[in-house]
Design a protein around this nucleic acid. Structure first.
Lengths: 184, 184
DNA sequence: TTATGGGTAGACAGGTCGGTCTACTTGGTC
DNA sequence: GACCAAGTAGACCGACCTGTCTACCCATAA
């Protein structure tokens, strides 16, 4: 992948995540990245293609980060602890690779593109199942049969804590989720 | 309130909720409502003022609907049951007053307006505490001291089930939330 | 040297955006 | 009838949007 292509994606991802895909036009991406318009259209057929590339980059980055965060977990209790404490670190801007917390890029982007059959919405949906798979795979490192019920609950609470942190500016979700899952 | 003002809010709310605030320009609101532009600016100083009016209308509508749905609850277990089954009905388009399900208008709008200090974001935040109060008040009808921990958990799971229903198109959240809260 | 690929600045096009304004109509009240 | 409030159609404005295109440059490989 070329330097310019990467530079465009990085710049666009940062701007889109902070401000919103529809709030940032391609001229702003070009101005901030210092790349020429023709170069942008050399690498991407449209703004949508650029948006999808930012989603893919974010997906890989988030998946990798989470994979590392939960890797030490040797049982379900540790998994829950690692996962939600990691999310808390994200909300509190302690994860540089994920940028200043502005909620979940995928939730936000799905909100901006309401047509659930659009490629962008479908990609956001895919991200959610990708993350579920990341968690399931970690469960599989210490259990023959991952606890599917627990997995469902973790994913449900994950959406809850993220949304609450962003919309309500309430960062207490992770501790609550940990306590709640201890009850089972 | 005048007929035209009400007509503008209703039309804008429907369009904004289905498509997104930034995806619908005022010219589209005018075309669909059949109201003249000068009339719109007679009633609202700006598009933002119209957006805030739609948020208020939605807030009242959702609060009222939820109040009615959970009114029969005589204990925490019933409250949880009524609340989450009501949400499920919403997701499955069984609540006409809330329109075709497109997630939470407040979550979506907060995603479209990323500046958390904007009036719009602050209103979305306010909505979340208003709904929390609706639930707390219902708890107070059958308990001297509402269970604040349960209330927190309900709100957390409420965000989770809504987000998951919208982004992941997974409507199984409410049953999971009910089971999870039974464990406490 | 030539060809190719990647890149530059930025003008241009057609369209939409939010908001302002002209000129006029209608209905109700005094 | 005069006045006021609410309303109409829609032109206009400046700004911004996405995408196309001209004319040109630079580096590398053959």
């Amino acid at each position: 992948m070329s330097d310019k292509r990467q530079q465009l994606i990085e710049t666009a991802l940062e701007l889109f995540y902070q401000e919103g895909v529809q709030s940032i036009g391609i001229n702003e991406v070009l101005k901030v990245s210092g790349v020429a318009k023709k170069t942008l259209y050399h690498h991407f057929t449209s703004k949508e293609a650029l948006v999808l590339a930012t989603l893919e980059t974010r997906n890989q980055r988030f998946s990798q980060w989470l994979t590392v965060q939960i890797a030490p977990a040797k049982n379900n209790q540790e998994l829950v602890e690692h996962l939600f404490q990691s999310l808390k670190g994200w909300f509190e801007d302690r994860v540089e690779v994920l940028g200043e917390f502005r909620g979940c890029f995928f939730i936000n982007t799905a909100a901006e593109f309401r047509d659930s059959e659009s490629e962008i919405s479908r990609y956001c949906r895919q991200h959610k199942s990708d993350i579920k798979q990341v968690i399931r795979q970690q469960m599989a490192t210490y259990a023959d049969q991952p606890d599917e019920t627990l997995l469902e609950r973790i994913c449900l609470l994950k959406e809850g804590v993220i949304t609450q942190a962003y919309v309500a500016q309430d960062m207490s979700g992770p501790e609550q989720a940990i306590e709640l899952l201890k009850g089972r």
